[in-house]
């Protein structure tokens, strides 16, 4: 049977994910080998104990939540290159919106892959250029008293305001409930991390949309 484009993407994605896993693990391994510096295992376990339960649980939630939006190629690329919620996801959403394609279609798959791949390449180049070339001046831009500092401190509201606007106008009936619930949760527990808040707002949004759909309101 002839392989579809999706089959091929999953094959490439699986190979590249496993390769990425080995590439990543080789970084601390090479450091230990090169400097003959093997850290005490208790220290590593203590550090991992603080982050692992939350980060691995968040990883499962993120994979489930982002899968319908990012497509197969976008998912494999995003989870290797990182910076998903603050960069790859908004970029993919923006590209689908501009190109007027829908998720879970082949067109959506192509556009999200192009958007995420472009974003990954540009990000990698900017970070590399930033580190190598602009190290001397970047502290001036990003330091506390810099005129640019407030802009970088507010990257996320700027990003999600721009993305949200399109959706809120088109789907205002769906939008009201998850925003209110998100705010209510934060009023009760202000320090809730966005990663933990997302499952609540996504479930509330889906449940609200389902009820409205069933009642013929949408």
């Amino acid at each position: 049977m002839k392989k579809t484009y999706y089959d091929k993407v999953h094959l490439w994605g699986r190979i590249s994910s496993v390769t990425a896993l080995f590439v990543m693990l080789s970084v601390p391994l090479f450091i230990c080998l090169r400097y003959d510096a093997w850290p005490p295992i208790q220290g590593v376990i203590k550090g991992l104990a603080a982050v692992l339960p939350l980060y691995w649980a968040t990883a499962v939630i993120e994979v489930v939540c982002y899968a319908p939006m990012l497509g197969a190629g976008g998912m494999y690329l995003s989870f290797v290159t990182g910076n998903i919620s603050n960069l790859k996801l908004p970029c993919a959403l923006s590209a689908m919106e501009s190109s007027k394609v829908k998720p879970n279609t082949e067109e959506g798959e192509i556009i999200t892959t192009i958007a995420v791949a472009t974003s990954a390449i540009v990000t990698t180049i900017i970070i590399a250029a930033g580190v190598v070339l602009f190290t001397p001046i970047l502290p001036c831009i990003t330091e506390k008293d810099s005129v640019f500092a407030p802009a970088f401190q507010q990257v996320l509201p700027a990003l999600f305001g721009a993305i949200g606007a399109g959706y809120f106008v088109k789907h205002w009936k769906i939008s009201v409930l998850p925003i209110i619930i998100g705010i209510v949760i934060l009023l009760a527990a202000p320090s809730t991390a966005v990663g933990l808040l997302i499952p609540f707002t996504v479930v509330v949004s889906l449940a609200g949309a389902h009820i409205m759909y069933k009642k013929g309101i949408l």
């Binding site: 919620s85 509201p157 993305i163 769906i174 998850p178 949004s205």
Partner: peptide, 25 residues
């Protein structure tokens, strides 16, 4: 329903960030 569901999933995700910008510590 799929269109509504996809939009709702996006909106749910975006809402978390919007809420944090309004009320997060």
């Amino acid at each position: 329903w799929t269109d509504a569901m996809s939009a709702a999933a996006f909106i749910g995700l975006i809402s978390a960030f919007i809420a944090r910008s309004v009320a997060g510590a």
